[in-house]
Amino acid sequence: MTDVIITAALVVAGIGLACSLLLVLASHFMGVKVNPVEGEVRDCLPGANCGACGFSGCDAYAKALAENPETPANLCRPGGESTTKAICEILGVEAEAAEPVVAFVHCGGDCNKQVYKEIYQGLNSCAAAKMLYGGKGSCLYGCLGCGDCATVCDNDAICIVNGVAKVDPRKCAGCGLCVAKCPNHLISIVPKAEKAVITCSNHEKGAVVRKECQNGCIGCMKCQKNCPAEAIKVENFLATVDYEKCIGCGKCVSDCPVGCLEMLKA
């Protein structure tokens, strides 16, 4: 009886020992040296692999940070300030404050303002809705309101209010997943600061826009003329704000005849 137990134990122990020896030798002779800094940096990153930093995932960003000292440490948007601080501590460099950013939906054509041309009852997806005559709204540039962006958001920062997607700046991590998802390319990443933002993306001429949506930018150039910082430019009948120049005075918001400019609530 004892013999059986001893033989069994010896055999299993022997195989285990052989396996561990194999692995020890393998990692000793064939191991690839990983920069220890890279591993530490990788542990700091949130692991969302969102690609907002411009690298193909958290691993690639950690590698770039460890190998190239000129890589900025403040690129991780989901991680935010705390991550930047942690990375800087590991790399031993001064922390540069990351500019906080949020996503913003450039459409304000909610169901009170937009003129609808059809009643859409299909699959609840913007991509599908767009395939049917460009969506239910008469404005072909506007929010389709089916919430593809809200579905893709990891932080529940987007919800559909009155038929138009709205981003909650307090929840938004600025990762940009929604930017890529919107079939009408309505969402962009803007600085999280008290600055003017345009809530329209329609490039049609003023008269056409008026028929489609009461919120639409008619390209009257009033904001461009009156902006003290020359931060607004009207191109193709649509105002665009240069966030670096905008001083957040709010003059354009009160001037706009259709009310398609608003101040970002930071």
Binding site: V4, T7, A8, V11, V12, I15, G16, C19, S20, L22, L23, A26, S27, M30, G31, V32
Partner: peptide
């Protein structure tokens, strides 16, 4: 050795070690 009944435990051990080894090998070469 009449140890056929140890099959499961030994196989798990060997496969786990082997996969680990293959991973190290692939990473290097």
């Amino acid at each position: 050795n009449g140890l056929g009944y140890l099959q499961t435990i030994v196989f798990i051990l060997v496969i786990a070690a082997l996969v680990q080894f293959v991973e190290i090998f692939l990473k290097k070469f």
